[in-house]
Design a protein around this nucleic acid. Structure first.
Length: 591
DNA sequence: TGGACGTGTCATTAG
DNA sequence: TACTAATGACACGTC
């Protein structure tokens, strides 16, 4: 395609005509008129330039924000954590913080008359974990036992969690053990510490955390990575969170969530993806007590700190299930076969198998069954997209990606409804996903399900050679190959059917047009026939008159006229006229 | 609720 | 023989 670039001032009418001609020549190739429009192309170039500058400014601003954030961080030598630098008047000792915390918790615990006070809890913990004379260190350690272990979206995002000294993990005195167990039960009856109510093994794992003081750069990098991720994707993730969160938390609870700072949003994000879901999901699978705690989480006003408290231990809940350590998400935890929900196991198995185990015909059967679980799977849970970037993932996909940290082509996990209410919320939320998914054809959904890295359009429209070449670059399973062949066959047949129907309609229209034309023609011919008949009658009339006139002028030898009943006039081919007796052959010729 | 209509799909045939 | 287009027939969803 030729390109003509002339400054607008130099474009004469002749140039414009030439451009127009060239455009008309290339219009069949899909070339737009703007291709030949220099001024428009220049405007586009300016626009791209502006976008580039805008992007650079944003990146610079982001770097400055990171620097400002780092400047506010201070390495806590005791805990190894990076903590925000607080104003001098707000700097408090760890003991004071614990004291304040105990006051707050006492206020909370006062609501539960039989529960232990927080100081008693602290004392109990000190007895359980005698950290020696270093009160500050022990307090710090205890504090970190209660403070959520930051977790969970990704191992990279785990902030530093430390214990002050080597924890003592064995209690040898049996009486003391009994007392401790009883006290622990009382301690766990505290609503705010419900999340501590986990298996003893898990508790031991919580308390027997080895002294892990990650190296500074790693924790530093983790914090930076987390902040960076939050900054970069805050808006996107918050949309997904908001969407999902609306389905999880009562609307009135949302009002109590004041997310107005980066730190809060960070905590919220970490809490949500690592804390809320694991807390909720694990609550279904561990024990009724934990379920109650989760129910309280749903029923009571949601407090981020509460989420944080539960987060650490729900994260640890994944500990006893090492087979799911590859994914640190609550969703993956929920996909554990130990899940007690039958619906879960059914849905999970169907999810895992539907897309990969069913043949095309079986998938077709499922597709044709709206109430089938497969259909719900396809509609409710967005399939992992292939390389087709045109597919916009639904909010649930975004949420799932963030919470699971799965790559786009990662293994698919399905999360069953946590509860009837949660299920309803999920259905409500996924109506949007349904609309988005509904835009995908079934073959596109199948291709996604089988993780076929081609666009359906490519599969269908590529010529045979290109198609074979494309196929030869990848290794596919039989199922994938069959699906690709079916997609190509169906796609071509679909187009053929559309063309066929189009032609059929065109033929029908053309035949109807022909029919109308023939009807018109018939009408014209009928009118013309009538005119001819009328003319013929006139001519016959004139001929009869002329005949009688001619006959009346004929006389015999005696001067008598011939009778028309006895004679008739006949004309031969040569033009001669004869008077012929009607009962005789022509014998007398009269000229 | 039945019918019209549009669409996708399958089976078959011909090129 | 493989591939494709064409087309009738059927099923399904929507109005």
């Amino acid at each position: 395609m030729m390109e003509i670039e002339l400054p607008p001032v130099q474009q004469t009418q002749q140039d414009m005509d030439l451009i127009d001609i060239l455009w008309r020549q290339d219009i069949d190739l899909g070339a737009g008129r703007e291709v030949f429009d220099y001024s428009q192309r220049q405007r586009e170039y300016e626009l791209e330039k502006q976008k580039k500058l805008e992007k650079e400014r944003l990146e610079q601003l982001q770097k400055e924000q990171e620097k400002a954030f780092l400047a506010q961080l201070q390495l806590d030598e005791e805990t190894g954590e990076f903590v925000p630098i607080q104003p001098a008047q707000h700097i408090e000792s760890e003991a004071t913080r614990i004291s304040n915390s105990s006051l707050e918790n006492n206020n909370l615990l006062e609501q539960d008359g039989e529960a232990l006070s927080f100081d008693e809890c602290i004392q109990l913990l000190e007895e359980t974990f005698p950290y020696g004379a270093d009160d500050e260190a022990s307090s710090s350690a205890i504090f970190h036992c209660l403070v959520p272990i930051q977790n969970d979206c990704s191992p990279d995002l785990i902030p530093v969690v430390t214990t002050a000294s080597e924890p003592h993990t064995t209690v040898t005195d049996p009486d003391r053990v009994d007392d401790l167990e009883q006290t622990w039960e009382e301690l766990l009856s505290i609503p705010e510490l419900q999340c501590l109510n986990i298996e003893n093994d898990s508790l031991e794992q919580v308390t027997v955390i080895p002294e892990t003081r990650p190296a500074l750069p790693e924790s530093f990098y983790s914090s930076i990575t987390m902040e960076k991720q939050i900054i970069n994707s805050a808006s996107t993730y918050m949309d997904a969170f908001e969407d999902s969160f609306n389905t999880t938390v009562h609307s009135e609870d949302l009002g109590q969530m004041n997310i107005n700072s980066l730190e809060t949003s960070t905590s919220f994000s970490a809490d949500f993806c690592g804390g809320l879901y694991p807390a909720l999901n694990s609550s279904m699978t561990i024990s009724g007590t934990t379920s109650q705690a989760a129910s309280k989480l749903l029923d009571e006003p949601l407090d981020i700190s509460d989420l944080s408290k539960c987060k650490a231990f729900s994260g640890d809940n994944q500990g006893p299930a090492p087979e799911f350590n590859d994914s640190d998400s609550g969703i993956s935890l929920n996909s554990s076969p130990s899940a007690t929900s039958p619906a879960h196991s059914a849905g999970s198995s169907i999810l895992n198998d539907a897309s990969f185990g069913y043949s095309d015909s079986e998938m077709e059967d499922m597709d044709s069954t709206p109430s089938s679980v497969q259909s719900q799977h396809v509609e409710m849970y967005s399939l992992q997209p292939c390389e087709d970037t045109a597919y916009q993932p639904s909010s649930s996909v975004l949420l799932e990606r963030q919470t699971t940290g799965l790559k786009p082509n990662g293994s698919l996990k399905k999360e069953p409804p946590a509860s009837p209410g949660h299920s309803k919320a999920l259905f409500a939320k996924d109506k949007l996903s349904n609309r988005l998914e509904a835009r995908l054809t079934r073959d596109e959904q199948r291709a996604k399900a089988l993780q076929i890295p081609f666009k359906v359009k490519e599969i269908i429209n590529l010529p045979v050679d290109d198609f074979n070449e494309m196929m030869s670059k990848h290794l596919f399973s039989e199922t994938q190959l069959a699906l690709i062949r079916d997609i190509r066959r169906r796609g071509k047949n679909k187009v053929a059917a559309q063309n066929c129907r189009k032609r059929k309609l065109e033929n029908i229209v053309e035949l109807e047009h022909d029919l109308d034309h023939l009807k018109d023609e018939r009408e014209k011919l009928l009118v013309e026939k009538g005119e001819y008949d009328k003319s013929l009658r006139t001519l016959k009339q004139q001929l009869s008159t002329l005949y009688l006139e001619v006959f009346s002028k004929l006389h015999d030898e005696e001067g008598k006229p011939y009778s028309p009943s006895e004679y008739s006039l006949q004309q031969t081919q040569d033009g001669n006229v004869f008077l012929v007796p009607k009962n005789k052959k022509p014998g007398i010729q009269r000229k």
